[in-house]
């Protein structure tokens, strides 16, 4: 029974990371209808910047917000200088819907290349002061560590912050309106281009936090977050791609699912399991658990 609860706790911790990456993908999807493969690259770059901040300031807790702000800026730059001009240039052409997605793959490759040049293709340690050794309960050590706890708390704070912005502020209303009906939004005076950039910046911040929280549990290399992108993507699809709550629930479901597979079946199958879960969800509920049935009114 304790194993069962421990597995859930560990699953929630990794699920929080997936939730952040999934949120990052959903925010971009909602604001520009692009599946952002560059998210893994953007997050790895911001994590490298966090790593640099850490090696100068010797303080993980200061490097964390630096990584997050860097992630927001990187994402805003990618949107303003690559995605937006590209969308305008490809408008009306046969590649209109696919060109931006391919461009995100290009950016992913480019960022990895740059990271490899600057930091080398080695495994760096970006460490947090928190122990990754499990808490002691009585005389037994459980797998859930202070680092896991920080991950869950950090993710929860950011998710609550986003939820509050989306629900209670004008900016949140503008972000939602612009994602559903850009034209009506413009006719209501919303500067949709600017709002899209902000949507990407939020997405970059969420991805950066995921990267900076997960990296202390592993290592940092130019493609160390690629698997996180896959998990975030599966979580986003489970959640229905459109829904912010869905993104979070999808991440947690996936995290807990992985933890159980790891605990009871073995680590060899976890990666394939992600894809099996993805395909099953797509077959049973193509719109995801939180997606709306049928098509949205365009």
């Amino acid at each position: 029974m304790t194993t069962f609860f421990n597995t859930i706790l560990v699953g929630i911790s990794s699920g929080s990371i997936y939730a952040l990456m999934s949120l990052s993908l959903v925010l971009v999807w909602r604001s520009t209808r692009v599946v952002n493969f560059a998210a893994a690259g953007q997050a790895v770059l911001s994590t490298y910047l966090g790593y640099e901040a850490m090696s100068r300031l010797h303080n993980y807790w200061l490097s964390l917000p630096i990584a997050v702000i860097a992630g927001a800026l990187i994402s805003a730059i990618v949107e303003s200088f690559v995605m937006r001009p590209l969308a305008k240039r490809s408008k009306g052409s046969p590649v209109e819907s696919i060109a931006p997605v391919i461009a995100t793959l290009g950016i992913l490759g480019l960022i990895r290349g740059i990271a490899g040049l600057v930091w080398g293709n080695t495994f760096l340690q970006y460490t947090s002061p928190l122990s990754s050794k499990g808490f002691m309960i009585g005389h037994t050590t459980i797998p859930f560590s202070p680092l896991n706890a920080a991950i869950v708390i950090g993710a929860a704070i950011v998710l609550a912050f986003f939820a509050a912005i989306f629900r209670f502020t004008r900016l949140g209303l503008a972000l939602r309106a612009a994602s559903f009906q850009p034209e009506i939004s413009r006719l209501s005076g919303i500067r949709v281009d600017r709002i899209r950039t902000i949507g990407w910046a939020f997405a970059g911040a969420a991805g950066a936090l995921a990267g900076a929280l997960v990296t202390p549990t592993t290592y940092l290399s130019p493609n160390s977050l690629d698997l996180l992108l896959v998990s975030g993507f599966v979580a986003a699809v489970i959640g229905g791609l459109e829904s912010l709550i869905g993104a979070v629930v999808g991440g947690l479901v996936l995290g807990v699912g992985f933890a159980f597979i790891l605990q009871y079946i073995g680590s060899e199958v976890t990666f394939s399991a992600a894809f099996i879960i993805l395909i099953i969800v797509l077959f049973i509920r193509p719109q995801g658990i939180f997606g709306r049935g049928g098509s949205r009114e365009a």
Partner: peptide, 19 residues
């Protein structure tokens, strides 16, 4: 021209969102 995904109140709020 309304945004079906938003509430009536939010649709109205949009009208003054820049003011």
């Amino acid at each position: 021209a309304v945004i079906p995904e938003l509430t009536v109140a939010e649709n109205l709020e949009l009208g003054g969102i820049w003011r």
